Amino acid sequence: MLAKAVKKLPTGDFLYEPKWDGFRSIIWRSGDEVEIGSRNSRPMTRYFPEIVRAVVDNFPDHSVIDGEIILVDPTTGDRLNFDLLQQRIHPAASRIKKLSEATPASFVAFDLLALGQENFVERPFRERRAALEKALADAEAPIHLTRATLDPAVAEQWFEQFEGAGLDGIVAKPLGEPYVEDKRVMSKYKHERTADCVVAGYRLYRGESDAIGSLLLGLYTDDGVLNSVGVIGAFPMERRRELFAELQPLVTTFEDHPWAWAQPEETSPDNRDQSFPRTPTAAAHSRWNAKKDLSFTPLRPERVVEVRYDHMEGDRFRHTAQFVRWRDDREPKSCTYAQLDEPVSYDLGEVLGG
């Protein structure tokens, strides 16, 4: 079941929950057998052996539970780290074992689909939530039951506080609705901010030679280094071709570019080898999709664009940013991290332990 984005928190017959920033997953347990499926039905079981063990220890037998796989930053212990969570998806069994011990994941449960011989999918959410609370009453870390409230004022407070622990908003779930697969029955209320970024490159739209697929964004550090912070890419096709023509005068070589280290080699390194440095574009292909080309055309960093973003993951935008407008009145060097809002720190343990 999915959620639609809203501009303000809905009120009425809703239960409000923190919006967890991880891998949405449905977990099946039958005896000692456990299967973890991703939102797009990809098998995830082999990547999280520590979750499998915890499910056997904590889930009731013959159960199906919807939730989120998250990873608590092992360095700070007080916030989520999605970047480390992504690194858990690795083809080598030895690497999976090592990462499961070095950066163990957790599972936050928020819906019950089946228990024993009972199918809960067609029941209203208030019944599913009550049954889930009972089913996980004795669960211990790394299995958690998500916090929830009926009070929209408390949810608004969570919206402000929990971002400091790495969460990215609030989900409002109608208490009277059944579990409807692939339907946006729930509402997600997320942070939205703007930033002025330098456009430092572009990728072509799939299958096209004269249309922009995405623009690569940069921000300057205090010592004048241009960091890659993310991309924008939602444009109508006509605008993609217009952008391609507009940006051609800025095309340059990697030798004259701040990201010269990203120049493709004749033989690209294996992106799956974690010993290879993780850089914005140096990898020739995506770890998630080996056929996806991540090379780009470098541009002289002379244009500034205002974008909308929800929150940061380290020094990068967590999700794809959205185009707002060109800022020809801004000097590229003025586009620094200092303009970004920094959430007040909040202990993740307070969220998980509630």
Rank of each mutant, 00 (worst) to 15 (best):
Y16K: 07
L167P: 09
G230V: 03
L150V: 02
D151W: 06
S38D: 05
S209Y: 00
Q117T: 15
S100K: 11
E101H: 11
T320K: 05
I27A: 04
N40F: 03
R129T: 00
V305N: 08
P18Y: 02
S214T: 13
L348D: 11
T75M: 07
K333T: 13
M186Y: 13
P152E: 12
L247A: 04
E331C: 05
K173S: 02
F162V: 14
Q86P: 03
R325D: 07
I232Q: 06
V55A: 09
N227A: 06
F159T: 09
P301D: 07
K7A: 14
E266D: 14
T103P: 00
G213D: 08
D270T: 03
K333F: 01
A3C: 09
I212D: 04
Q161K: 14
R24F: 03
K134S: 09
I232Y: 06
C197E: 02
A245D: 13
E181S: 09
D168A: 03
D256K: 13
Q86H: 08
R206F: 12
I96M: 03
L99D: 11
I51E: 07
I232F: 08
V251D: 09
P332H: 02
L71P: 03
Y220K: 06
T252M: 10
G218P: 05
P343L: 07
A3K: 04
W20H: 10
K19V: 11
A165I: 07
E163S: 10
G169H: 07
S25D: 09
F82L: 14
D222F: 00
R300V: 10
E163N: 12
L247E: 05
P258R: 02
E118K: 15
F235N: 04
P49R: 06
R42W: 11
F323D: 04
F82V: 11
G37N: 10
Y47H: 15
E255Y: 08
E122C: 02
H144W: 15
P10V: 02
G166M: 03
F159M: 10
A234I: 14
N58Y: 07
I26S: 10
R308I: 01
T76N: 08
P18W: 01
E350Q: 14
A195H: 05
V198E: 09
D13H: 10
I232L: 12
F162P: 03
M237R: 15
M237H: 15
P280Y: 12
S345K: 15
E33Q: 13
G224E: 12
L85M: 08
E163G: 13
F82C: 05
A282T: 13
D73C: 04
H285S: 13
F14L: 11
I26V: 15
L219K: 09
N81Y: 05
D341Q: 13
A92G: 00
A139V: 10
R203N: 05
E140F: 01
G164C: 12
P269F: 05
D341E: 14
Q161I: 04
Q157L: 10
D13A: 11
D273M: 01
V231I: 13
R327V: 04
P10E: 02
E133A: 05
L250R: 06
F23G: 03
T11N: 10
M186H: 15
A130V: 08
Y202W: 13
T149E: 00
R79A: 10
Q117K: 15
P249M: 01
P264L: 10
P10C: 02
L136Y: 03
L247F: 12
N289C: 05
F323K: 03
F125G: 01
F125Y: 15
A105N: 11
R88Y: 08
E208R: 14
E17H: 04
L348T: 10
R123Q: 11
P152K: 08
